[in-house]
Simulated scan of single mutants.
Amino acid sequence: MARILLLVMSMFALSLGAGGAWAQLTVDAYRVEATVANQSEAERVAATKANLGEVITRVLGDSAALQHPLVRQAINDAPNYLAKFSYSSDKTIVLNYSPQAIQTLLQQAQLIAASASTAQGLTLYIVDVKDFSAFKQVQAYLKTVGVIRNANLVSVEKDVMQFSILLDGDEQLLKTTLAAGNKLQVVSDKPLSFRWQN
């Protein structure tokens, strides 16, 4: 009897241990490991574009969304949807896409319902905007950045544009996303300022 009880208790303990291990095997839908030829910017951008569709498919559970015009545009602008990236080896990149940016994209495309989450408002300065062409490029670029829900131009003074922006995420996520896009370089945190690199 004692042996049977010991056997039952052992099996129970094993099942608890297995359950704990199973719980740790959760998949991060926004994380992808991809093979790259090298660690160049071109390879990173290509990997980011090649894998954003997979992430969107995982999040929605349906690949039909990849035909939506806003989603196709987002895939072209995929670096704007990265929260961070790293390399686990010389030829393996780890891409962590921004859940907030992707959720915002899917809401804008009306593929998911808008959430009641509160967005964060910030003032953003873009400096070194030399001419009207750059002025238009900055405005167009900010519309492609996934974490920015809305960007309103407040003023233009010499080569500085001031925007009032609404974020899906926080200031750090915005800085990381903009740095990954290679169009803007951080100049200052207070006030939040970026240099336009055209």
Rank of each mutant, 00 (worst) to 15 (best):
W22D: 09
W22A: 14
A23M: 13
L25I: 07
T26F: 10
V27S: 09
V27A: 10
A29G: 12
Y30N: 10
T35C: 05
N38R: 06
N38W: 00
Q39A: 07
Q39G: 06
S40C: 04
A42C: 01
A42S: 13
E43I: 06
E43S: 15
R44Y: 14
A46Q: 15
A46F: 04
A50H: 04
N51A: 03
G53Y: 00
V55N: 05
V55K: 02
I56G: 02
R58Q: 11
G61A: 14
S63V: 12
A64F: 08
A64S: 15
A64G: 13
A64P: 01
Q67K: 15
H68K: 09
H68M: 06
P69L: 08
Q73T: 02
I75K: 05
I75M: 13
D77L: 00
P79M: 00
Y87Q: 10
S88F: 09
S89G: 12
S89D: 14
K91E: 13
T92A: 10
I93R: 07
V94E: 09
L95W: 04
S98F: 01
I102Q: 02
I102D: 04
Q103Y: 04
Q103M: 05
L105T: 01
L105E: 01
L105V: 02
L105K: 01
L106S: 01
L106H: 00
Q107I: 01
Q108Y: 00
Q108K: 13
A109H: 01
Q110R: 12
Q110D: 13
L111V: 04
L111N: 02
A113R: 07
A113V: 09
A113H: 03
A114V: 13
S115M: 01
S115W: 00
S117L: 12
Q120F: 06
Q120I: 11
T123F: 11
L124E: 03
I126G: 04
I126W: 06
I126K: 07
D128N: 15
F132S: 14
